[in-house]
Computed example of a mutant assay.
Amino acid sequence: MKPQITSLCAVAVMLSACADSGAEYTPILDGQPTAAFHSDLSACQSLARNQTQLDQETVAAAALGAGAGGVLGALDDEGDAAGGAVVGAIAGGVSGAVNASERREEMVIACLRGRGHKVVG
C-alpha cells in the first residue's frame, strides 16, 4: 500500500505543475503586438495562474476518480480496491489537470481580447 501512496503523491505533484501550464500560454495575434502587449500578457497570465479554484477542481476530480476506481477495483474478480483507487485517482487527476490548463489558456485569451488585443488563438 505504501508504494501506491507514494506514486499517487508523485502524480499529484506532476498534475499540479501541468495544470498551471495553460497560464503560460502566449496566443497568436492578428498583426503586430502593440507596445502594451507584453505587459498585458504578463498581467493576464498572472490572473490565469492565480485561479486556485481550478486546482481545487483538479483535486476533486482525482478524489472522485479514486472513489470510482476503488469501487470498480473491489468489484473486479481480483478485488484490488487500492489498485483501482490509485488508477482512478490518476485518471481523474489527469482529466482535471487538462481541463484546468485549457481553462487557464482561455482566460489568457479572453483577458487579452478585453484589453483590446487582436487575439486569433
Rank of each mutant, 00 (worst) to 15 (best):
52 T>I: 12
63 A>H: 05
55 D>H: 14
36 A>K: 10
65 G>H: 05
35 A>H: 04
55 D>N: 13
51 Q>E: 15
65 G>L: 06
53 Q>F: 15
80 D>Q: 08
40 D>A: 08
78 E>V: 09
57 E>V: 04
71 V>W: 13
85 A>G: 08
85 A>S: 12
66 A>M: 03
69 G>V: 02
58 T>M: 10
74 A>W: 12
53 Q>S: 15
42 S>H: 11
63 A>Q: 09
62 A>M: 02
45 Q>K: 12
40 D>E: 12
65 G>N: 05
52 T>Y: 13
28 I>R: 14
63 A>V: 15
40 D>L: 07
56 Q>A: 14
32 Q>Y: 11
39 S>M: 09
55 D>L: 12
53 Q>D: 15
41 L>N: 08
30 D>C: 08
46 S>P: 01
45 Q>F: 02
36 A>F: 00
58 T>K: 06
31 G>C: 05
60 A>W: 06
76 D>M: 06
28 I>T: 15
38 H>C: 00
81 A>F: 05
78 E>L: 07
59 V>T: 11
55 D>K: 13
75 L>Q: 10
50 N>D: 14
52 T>Q: 13
41 L>S: 02
38 H>E: 11
32 Q>K: 12
51 Q>D: 14
67 G>H: 10
75 L>G: 08
31 G>V: 05
69 G>P: 04
31 G>P: 01
54 L>T: 03
61 A>H: 07
51 Q>W: 13
60 A>T: 06
65 G>F: 10
35 A>L: 10
40 D>V: 02
63 A>G: 09
44 C>V: 03
80 D>N: 13
83 G>Q: 04
30 D>E: 15
